[in-house]
Design a protein around this nucleic acid. Structure first.
Length: 466
RNA sequence: GGCUGGGUGGCAGAGUGGUCAUGCAGCGGCCUGCAAAGCCGCGUACAUCGGUUCGAUUCCGUUCCUAGCCUCCA
């Protein structure tokens, strides 16, 4: 029994796929005109966790995430950079793929681009005009007549009349109503454009997603998601477009993710308080970033700070330490296992990752206790831990690989090579055998200064970078 | 102004009408040549004021604070 919070109903709804065992999920992706920041990472990883978990629970998931590769900001940026729209877009799509891959996010099943879905958009707009929901203005723009769609505002829980008050209303004499939004923009000189029944032009933002989603996944989606800032107007408009065109219920479950904040403010480009994914990954490893971003619930805000990332790193270390020196094997997760049961219960309750993480920590303690008592039992528990964590993309590295990464950028400058570390450890071992503890401690302190922590055990010494 | 959320221990962050979150940091102990890691233990947390209740951090209302959306935005 999987319960997911639905923005439409504002409560946790029992999730039932349209086709048993199969889920179609559409997530609004990125407008590609700049590098992705950690706020984008939050949303991408939130849905990556859902995707992985749903797959792990045996669902077949068709996960579609679009790319907006034509809009005002792209055109503006390309012009500023004195490059073509194509060059700009190609560059940032490549960067986005690099960044998401570096974060360990799985690729979506399909990743449609707006400019490759133009005919479907034109078809949908044509239908909307025929159905009386849209009109062609004098300037050859096509607009959606918001007041014709009876349930407009139902998703974002606002009334049309409230929208007018206080908001900066777009003054546009071509619109019949200030709230109407554009479906098709007539081309201006020098802008990319496509032929249409209304002349050369390009699509409005909202129609892209309606067209791509219904084209690939059908008229009704199981899940549609995105960042919380997309609820209004983007998703509200998508509903109006899709349902106005198809006459069918568009989305069963709306999922929206909370923001990354900096000093308790939303991270955004206009505030200039954003950190790009590639910059953050220079300082913190991908597992730490993932842990940080899922250590609070996906609908809650998460505050970006060095301190919080460092805490996340320490948490990851604790989990990885439980795996170290264990013989890990592929195991089938048994739903009767108490930890598996608790973990699934947490995730089935609106993807409660903080609760699920607490189960992983409890299991890690169990591994640590078992490690000195019953090694093979500890190995089994550790294998379950790794497998369970894997369902949300954690503990995916070999422990020694994780520990050979450092989270301190300054340490990279004069970092010792693995071979040099091993040599010093060998020297220290000789000193210890000779009971020359002063020398042994000197070597250990030298390593510590270089960011390497030593841990002695029965067979020798383990090391890890701090 | 309208409409949504949120205020939990030094920090992060779940949750619940009545013995436990969990992690980081701190303190004490065990272990260790000494450490580290680990294990065990410790710390009068639930913004405010009222109300409901045998009992509220949890339900209801007040106040204060705070974030977001109403304009492009993950």
């Amino acid at each position: 029994m999987l319960y997911i919070h639905n923005s439409f109903t504002k409560q946790k709804d029992l999730f039932t796929p349209i086709t048993p065992g199969k889920i179609n999920m559409y997530v609004c992706g990125i407008t590609v005109y700049d590098y992705c920041h950690i706020g984008h990472a939050r949303t991408v990883l939130a849905f990556d966790v859902m995707y992985r978990y749903l797959l792990a629970r045996g669902f077949e998931v068709n996960y579609v995430r679009n790319i907006t590769d034509i809009d005002d900001k792209i055109i503006k940026r390309a012009h500023e950079n004195k490059e073509s729209v194509e060059t700009l877009v190609d560059r940032f799509i490549l960067a986005m793929h690099e960044d998401f891959a570096a974060l360990g996010a799985q690729s979506p099943s399909q990743e449609p681009r707006a400019t490759q879905t133009i005919p479907q958009m034109i078809a949908m707009i044509t239908t909307l005009i025929a159905n009386g929901y849209a009109y062609v203005a004098k300037n050859n723009d096509v607009y959606y007549h918001v007041r014709k769609f009876a349930s407009y505002g139902a998703l974002s829980h606002r009334k049309l009349d409230d929208l007018c008050v206080g908001a900066r209303v777009d003054v546009n004499e071509d619109k019949q109503d200030p709230l109407d939004f554009v479906l098709w923009k007539a081309a201006k000189p020098g802008e990319p454009s496509w032929p249409s029944p209304w002349g050369l032009g390009r699509p409005g933002w909202h129609i892209e997603c309606s067209a791509m989603a219904t084209d690939i996944l059908g008229e009704t989606l199981d899940i549609h998601g995105g960042g919380h800032d997309l609820v209004f107007p983007h998703h509200e408009n998508e509903r109006a477009q899709s349902e106005g065109a198809t006459g069918k219920h568009f989305v069963n479950l709306w999922i929206h993710t909370g923001f990354v904040e900096v000093d308790a403010e939303k991270m955004s480009k206009s505030l200039g308080n954003f950190f790009t994914i590639r910059d953050v990954l220079k300082t913190f490893d991908a597992q730490t970033v993932r842990f940080f971003l899922i250590s609070s619930h996906y609908r809650s805000p998460v505050n970006y700070s060095q301190e919080n990332l460092q805490q996340a790193r320490a948490c990851c270390e604790r989990l990885y330490l439980a795996l170290r020196c264990r013989k890990l094997s592929e195991v089938e997760l048994d739903e009767n296992n108490a930890y598996v049961k608790r973990f699934y219960a947490a995730m089935d309750d609106d993807f409660n990752t903080p609760e699920a993480l607490s189960v992983l920590f409890d299991l890690a303690r169990e591994v640590n206790i078992a490690s000195s008592l019953d090694s093979s039992h500890a190995d089994e528990l550790a294998s379950v831990l790794k497998q369970l964590a894997g369902t949300i993309g954690l503990l995916s590295l070999a422990p020694e690989v994780f520990f050979q990464q450092t989270s301190k950028p300054s340490a990279n400058l004069d970092a010792l090579s693995n071979d040099a570390i091993e040599q010093l450890i060998a020297d220290r071992k000789a000193a210890r055998l000779a009971k020359d503890f002063a020398k042994a401690d000197a070597i250990r302190n030298e390593l510590l200064d270089k960011g390497v922590i030593l841990e002695d055990n029965a067979t020798g010494s383990c090391w890890r970078r701090s």
